[in-house]
Design a protein around this nucleic acid. Sequence first.
DNA 1: TTGTATGCGTTATCAC
DNA 2: GTGATAACGCATACAA
Lengths: 342, 342
Amino acid sequence: MGNQSEITIHDIAKKLNISASTVSRALKDNPIISEATRKRIKKAAEEMGYRPNIMAANFRTKRTNTIGVIVPLINRHFFSSVISGIEEVAYDQGFTVTISQSNDNLEKEQKIAYTLFSNRVDGVILSIGMETKEIDHLQLFANRKVPMVFFDRIVEEIETHKIIVNDFEGAYKATQHLIEQGASRIAHIGGPLNLKIYENRQKGYCKALSDAGIEVDNSLIINGNLRRDDGYKATKKLVLAENRPDAIFCANDTTALSAIIFLQENGIKVPEEVAIVGFSNEPFSQVVTPTISTIRQPGFLIGKKAAELIIKQINSNKKSVVYETIVMPTELIIRESSKRKK
Amino acid sequence: MGNQSEITIHDIAKKLNISASTVSRALKDNPIISEATRKRIKKAAEEMGYRPNIMAANFRTKRTNTIGVIVPLINRHFFSSVISGIEEVAYDQGFTVTISQSNDNLEKEQKIAYTLFSNRVDGVILSIGMETKEIDHLQLFANRKVPMVFFDRIVEEIETHKIIVNDFEGAYKATQHLIEQGASRIAHIGGPLNLKIYENRQKGYCKALSDAGIEVDNSLIINGNLRRDDGYKATKKLVLAENRPDAIFCANDTTALSAIIFLQENGIKVPEEVAIVGFSNEPFSQVVTPTISTIRQPGFLIGKKAAELIIKQINSNKKSVVYETIVMPTELIIRESSKRKK
DNA sequence: TTGTATGCGTTATCAC
DNA sequence: GTGATAACGCATACAA
């Protein structure tokens, strides 16, 4: 319990009159060390309060057992779910997880990437920021053969593992569901189309309509930044137009909620008069009134999968790797905001 | 851009026909190196794609520039806010942040602590788990003089920096508010009392009652783990008892929500018949129906402050430190679930 | 089964 | 202002 200074394998060796290498091997459960010696050594290590100096071991073995993670913002449900999943798998496999947030800022993302590289992380899991168009800082990892897994906001040009959600399918299912509930004039509050995920959601929406023989009406599609007031204003515009929609598929839950709020404020019944489906399954969507139908994005699973992929690659000793692009299925969660029939 | 193997300061030295020490000094902007040499070296380093091996430097200097963070669960708004705040400050000061979640499991928390110690993190910021009654694994840091900052769920026995929210004050204000709204039989759904924060919330609740001349009735206090069904069951028990309460102060928003759900399911009006106040200001609390009155905890600020404290201590070279306990103010946010008068 | 010797890349101490 | 050299703690190739 005292404030002893660091104990090393040499201290243990000296005390037991054996060599440091034997101690090193015993503590690593190397089978060539006899049972008896190993026990003596472990006992002494325990008693002396030995804690391995992992810095020294890392330095020696050129491995850090650390996975670097870069996300736009930690404090966001989807990303913190992914991180939680990564951490769980990584921890079980003896890896440490280092987290950085880019704040959707390219310069910060670049600095983080260089720092992670200098820290010799064994692998990197990342989702790029809104501003990221140059990718030299990410190519670095690819060039130096540092295992990498992109998720959600991926870089198509870099050949490595990628995990994405099937946005097209999710949007398709959401729209189809609204049609099944009897809606025929279905609007869409969409995101910025320079981001692939929003483009795909919009495409899924359009495809579901045309497959059902409904013509896509561009006046029913409003793109914006998907914040609270974007949804509110978009809904207002849609509802005040002549021939208003009887359903809205929103590209995220935030706009779905603000749509509902606008409708309720104006005495328009959800889902009877206007049915709503959102996207992402944010925690609030299942507790608001009415509960919001939405598309689940399996953040925790994505994190687990990303960690599994990267650890597998790290442990594969740089043997040739076949890069996978995993498309995670989406799930339609039907709740009150869209359910007209039972 | 090729797949060169690691470049070291020796490679740069060789190329420029100078010594490695000069290179090392130049790259660290050591002023004793001449301007000209420094520029040559930096240029060469840049051209050769040199990335310092931080593992080696860490090993040599016994510093990792890494802050370890232990939280019960990453994917939870309060904690991810704190982490976000920590990361922001740490990044600015050149520190890396390593995150682990204990899942409120003592054994995992212990293993994490030993791992962080073995990794020689420069400091640890942590909030303990529900099960944590033994604290040997945390004493370790204190004994070895590793800077430590507790936040939210602190350990009183360990003398170090602590950042807490004024739980007593928050609970007091919440309860007082319920009294002002005309409630007189106010119940409390509390957390496990081994955690100081819940003890303080309970004390604040009791004090507010007695200050108002209301006797504390122990049958109106139910302690549990504050999950969804804990709140549901506790409310059921409270409501089905004779002489049911006309208000409930819940120690978190989760139980506040489940209380509301139970009440609504049973046709009991919130806030008219039973008024509710929660704690934490979870994002959902402002979007559910009714919106939930609650106590705001400044997570992001707590994280920033924690990072500042620990970095200050790390940089102080173990000079005698005066440990601070910072009490962050709380704020009562009045919403629909408790507002009877306007 | 155990011991000896060596080196990982950097920084720090001393010398020049 | 610069260079030579040692040292950090561990893991491992090789020797015994």
